[in-house]
Design a protein around this nucleic acid. Structure first.
Lengths: 187, 187
DNA sequence: CGAAAAGTAAACCGATCTGTTTACATAACG
DNA sequence: CGTTATGTAAACAGATCGGTTTACTTTTCG
């Protein structure tokens, strides 16, 4: 196994652990899960917080293009991609594969405590905003800026409401609102 | 100082600490902040997690009526109370006095780990839903159930987006959407 | 082959955590 | 006054944490 593969292996296991058990999971769990010693872990990552920052960066670099590709596959019509974005996330949530935005969780956990993690989270959120804006523009809506801000509120609201209520219904609600906004675009 | 006053004193200090420093704050900080010894703390609360569960319960019992009263004060007209609820939360956020829903934070932190805290959080969220529904009914909207679900998504979305972006703008966005929904009530 | 690199397992460090206990001071109250 | 409850301060227990180091084994590769 090459160096890059091993580093990727650590990233994959650590991400899974932090994603569904929270950032207070100990490094011992990562070692055991990945099957490496502590010395190796600290050879690849100088500290746990640097590892987390790299996880957020990895999330940004991988999830955004993956999400875009999946939305384009589900909705060949560009006009429908805004709704399709919600559909894709809702489907992942229903399958139990989606547990909220990793970057948002990291940002809330390390707010005012770790600048590197905060910066990585902000970069991810900026990318997400860009993706949302691209889909909003495709709808032909006359005010894509406003629509983007609205869609971000709806997206975040659906995610957190779904997490808290353990139900995918908030996604249906959010999509219903989006359709209203697309039909009556002038607040 | 009576027993109840002292217990309340602990609750107040612990709540403040957990609210803006997270649930991983140590009990030592609570002792120092309240000005009591560890023995006294553990006389009133058998464990840290029980204390947190009682904090969530205390949040529910106090915040909901307070919120309702404040909204009624701001909006004498029942029809405007749904928007006023967002205004009140936005104002608290702008003043720096609002840092998200304590119950949602607790639920996300102790999901699948502490049933008592989870139950208290769910009770709080149910009360919040009831408050939201009452305000939705006052608007005269023909489908208060749907409106309530929509308002909850918007509220949660505004809160988390505001927290993540350190800006109150998402509240304006959410209120704009609400006004649209109230004007064009049929999706 | 044989040296260098990279790995594991485990001890270890110092700090921190929840929670208990001991020793002592203080206040209430008959 | 003396007893009892209630408090503090601090030591202590046992665990876990992030992180380092040591001793030894495996792999890689000229």
């Amino acid at each position: 196994m090459s160096k890059m593969q091993k580093k990727q292996d650590i990233i994959d296991h650590a991400f899974e652990l932090f994603y569904d058990q929270g950032f207070n999971t100990g490094v011992d769990a990562i070692m055991a899960d990945t099957g490496i010693s502590k010395r190796t872990l600290y050879k690849y990552f100088p500290s746990k917080e640097v590892l987390i920052a790299e996880l957020v960066e990895h999330y940004r670099v991988n999830v955004i293009p993956l999400l875009r590709a999946e939305v384009e596959r589900v909705s060949p019509d560009p006009k429908g991609r805004l709704i399709a974005l919600f559909d894709v996330r809702q489907a992942k949530f229903t399958e139990g594969c989606f547990r909220g935005c990793f970057a948002v969780s990291a940002k809330l956990e390390y707010a005012c405590r770790n600048a590197q993690i905060e910066a990585a989270s902000e970069a991810m959120m900026a990318d997400m905003n860009g993706l949302m804006r691209a889909f909003c523009e495709m709808t032909g809506h006359p005010d894509p800026d406003t629509l983007t801000a609205q869609a971000m509120v709806l997206f975040n609201g659906a995610v957190v409401a779904a997490q808290a209520s353990r139900s995918a219904k908030p996604f249906d609600t959010a999509k219903g609102i989006l359709r209203v906004l697309l039909s009556f675009p002038l607040p």
